[in-house]
Design a protein around this nucleic acid. Sequence first.
DNA 1: GATGGTTGGTTGCAAATCTAAACCGACCCG
DNA 2: CGGGTCGGTTTAGATTTGCAACCAACCATC
Lengths: 157, 157
Amino acid sequence: MAESHQPDDCSIQRTLDAIGDRWTLLILRDLFRGVRRFSMIQTDLGIARNLLADRLISLADEGVVKKVPYQDRPPRHEYHLTAKGRALSPALVALMRWGDDYYTDGGAPTELVHDECQTRLELQSWCTSCNSPVDPTHIRSAPGAGRVLSVTETEDV
Amino acid sequence: MAESHQPDDCSIQRTLDAIGDRWTLLILRDLFRGVRRFSMIQTDLGIARNLLADRLISLADEGVVKKVPYQDRPPRHEYHLTAKGRALSPALVALMRWGDDYYTDGGAPTELVHDECQTRLELQSWCTSCNSPVDPTHIRSAPGAGRVLSVTETEDV
DNA sequence: GATGGTTGGTTGCAAATCTAAACCGACCCG
DNA sequence: CGGGTCGGTTTAGATTTGCAACCAACCATC
């Protein structure tokens, strides 16, 4: 892409530049699930090998994954998530939850649960100051730039 | 994409099939911000007009947005998020937060805050049963399919 | 020590996708 | 009537992608 004419003035723009590729989030999903080797990912996803190689290089350049050797002579390595990569967990969870809610037809929804009580997890905005969850209608954008991420401006369908 | 050889067995796969396009999440960001008209979105994003038209049709087909007429004679309409579309809010927020955390260099981070106390928001997994936030290390995948979305299997970088 | 298998790629080409720019119909304004 | 806006569609050319074949390094085996 020619990098939108708006120089990336937005976190979402920057994020999508880094990981917004059609395959990248699926690769990350595999890494989260412990599928870490080139051929395992390739088999699991059915992605072309050259694309997988490219994506892994980009992800390593971005610092989202790192190569970790697991044997020497043939040099072989796995791709591990860095802290930056693991920080994507909420985003993956949110996307997964949305898929569960609206595309349940297929197969097992791969739901996420709290291991202590087996309850299905929600994803909540959390205010560390109030130490409580925040209703979406009380979310505003920060430095007063007038940009509101609103979920209430439209009526229900 | 040729729809991976794995028939979409995963919520993330299904989700990305629906909205995983390079532009689609940016279009949704605009809709969340109240940018709802064809030419406004086109100007804001710099997307080609045919692609924008295609994406909006797909999003309407998916039930993520709906066309809402705002004048009659020339028939003109806006694109509004449906409930299904608004349900993507946590995912957008999560992606935005990640961008804020790791790509702050550029400009104003467009942070999200709690409007009552102006505190920056975190995104938390929430157990409705325990009525409390859940630590990432206590997340397991649901119907015991052996698929764990783990954030702790690798060491820090 | 040749034969085959596994792993992690690279290369080349056809097919799909994207961009840019022109065009269009329905209207409004002066 | 001439010009401008809005919401697109069409076309043509550049870019990206997918697929398949190939390759190099090793191992295991006979």
